[in-house]
Amino acid sequence: MSPQLEMLKGTLDLMVLQTLEAMGALHGYGIARRIEQISGDSILLNQGTIYASLVRLQQRGLIRSEWGSSENNRRAKFYSITRRGSRRLAETAENWEQLSTVIARFFAAQKEPSR
């Protein structure tokens, strides 16, 4: 297993949003599992932190929740992304891509011999 990544602030919220956008309605456990899988287990959450993220997103009206029934027929809360959330996700994703491209370019530049 690769060493765990240190998460930047706001990253988890973004991952949760993207997961809900891609997968539709999911409960907290499903979201946590999905994030771990996608990251190739380089992100191992204290799965409880997912719930803080879910509360934050819900407070901002980016996701909504409703009770439903889980795989093992237990009552569970299912979260889904709102239209506002989708819009926000698109904006933030674009920002992230630009930022990571620039950062990557910086690291690449450092390797060239100085003249």
Binding site: H27, G28, Y29, R33, S70, R75, A76, K77
Partner: peptide, 17 residues
């Protein structure tokens, strides 16, 4: 109460796994 139930469901699912 809501959150307790939500957490209990989470632990159950994880334990089942």
């Amino acid at each position: 109460e809501d959150f307790n139930e939500e957490l209990a469901a989470h632990v159950d699912l994880l334990a089942a796994e």
